[in-house]
Design a protein around this nucleic acid. Structure first.
Lengths: 234, 234
DNA sequence: CACAAAAGTCAACAAGTGTTCACTGAATAA
DNA sequence: TTATTCAGTGAACACTTGTTGACTTTTGTG
């Protein structure tokens, strides 16, 4: 106790030294590596039937190749790790979306290509998406709300994208947000069903794909008719 | 072993006696009572943060007031109890839907009233709905598919309801199914968000209510425009 | 009545759980 | 060089978990 205090006085703590150099050093690199190992292990353990809350701290450390006690050097508990996973998952998604946005939107078969792109992306990041799918309604409220916040953000970005289309002229920003929300809803549901499909079942996948395309077309038609009077002389 | 065989030969088993009278007897009544107690306990334990898979068999029996070993007189394990919960939840929902269908559909404010009715129902059966919401994407694949099957059934019933409307004339049954699916999707999402709201927050609830109403109107407009050419002379 | 069927009890089991504590050894800083 | 920080160790802790087998006690039945 007193000994601890003396030590503390003789040297400045890490925060006082304003994080001078621990970044990039071999020490920090190693730490980041095991941190990543923990995140990956948790994601891996959730494959199949398991939910995040059913994965134990000890299992994670076992898979990551460290001892249980060392876990606390990285996270205060499983919940914090869960939040880090939410962050991770959406970070990669947002990056990929930015790239997709950079390339000009295809004028033809816009919906078809969008669905294709998104489901393709979901497939290459299967584990992250499955995590999100499971925790969107399942786990602790902290994680649930973190996911929901990210989805909301995602929706807003889509809404501003949609605003560029001519059909958005007659639609209020609030309604645009609502339409974007419905689109995101449909796509997320499709993604979750898609990832839940037994792998290598191209028929089911194709069926799901067509269905989603139709859903988006339905929403598109709805958006066209929104606020503008339906054809006066039909 | 041999003793057991002898006993078995001297009397016919329950199934051989084709379930003659154990129904209604005080024995069976008691059994049904504890069975219900187990289901209720599981549902109750899921309140708040917990998912079904994180609820333990022992907790359930503890809450139900029996000893862990007695659990196996009712279910082979937690998964079977989960399936029973799925059944239970949808049974009450379907019954209520049948009643709603019996009363004539309101010609005015149809969407508004439907949403109101559904959310109201969800509120009075909060626990069942929260269970479904959590297990729709979360738990074991067996339970997940059971839920999905029930939702599909629900969708089909809505589709046949929708078929009675004049606007359904230009829509193929397959597309009608798809539209009904989108409606159910939207309503379920709204329900789940609704039940996740902090209680006694009428503003948030009203906001969610309006949003859902709009979503359904959007889908309705989309359905009107579906397959029929969009107004030739706009 | 006599006897089986069956819901529920009791005790024990091997295993797994989260968290703690004093520790070691290598990277870092003075 | 020397002292310190800190990721990771190893052991121990007090629990909780699912499942088992042999039991009691009530209910149903030939």
């Amino acid at each position: 106790m007193t000994l601890k205090k003396l030590r503390a006085k003789r040297h400045r703590s890490a925060v006082e030294r304003e994080e001078a150099s621990p970044n990039g050093g071999p020490r920090d690199e190693r730490k980041q590596r095991t941190r990543r190992a923990l995140l990956d292990a948790a994601l891996e353990l959730m494959q199949g039937e398991r939910s995040f809350s059913s994965v134990s701290l000890r299992e994670v450390t076992r898979s990551a190749g460290i001892v249980p006690a060392a876990f606390y050097r990285h996270f205060s508990g499983m919940e914090e790790l869960g939040l880090a996973l939410v962050d991770d998952s959406f970070k990669t998604l947002r990056r990929s979306m930015r790239e997709a946005r950079a390339a000009a939107l295809p004028a033809t078969h816009l919906i078809q290509r969008s669905v294709q792109t998104f489901l393709g992306y979901a497939q290459t990041h299967r584990k992250h998406f499955q995590f999100i799918a499971k925790e969107r309604f399942g786990g602790s409220s902290v994680i649930r709300f973190a996911v929901r916040k990210e989805v909301h953000l995602f929706t807003s970005e889509l809404a501003t994208d949609l605003a560029r289309f001519p059909l958005a002229a007659k639609i209020s920003t609030e309604d645009l947000q609502m339409i974007a929300g419905t689109v995101v809803q449909a796509v997320l549901m499709a993604t979750e069903a898609f990832l839940d499909l037994p792998p290598n079942e191209p028929d089911d996948a194709a069926q799901l794909f067509r269905q989603t395309e139709k859903q988006l077309r339905l929403l598109f038609i709805g958006a066209q008719g929104w606020r503008s009077k339906v054809a006066r002389n039909a």
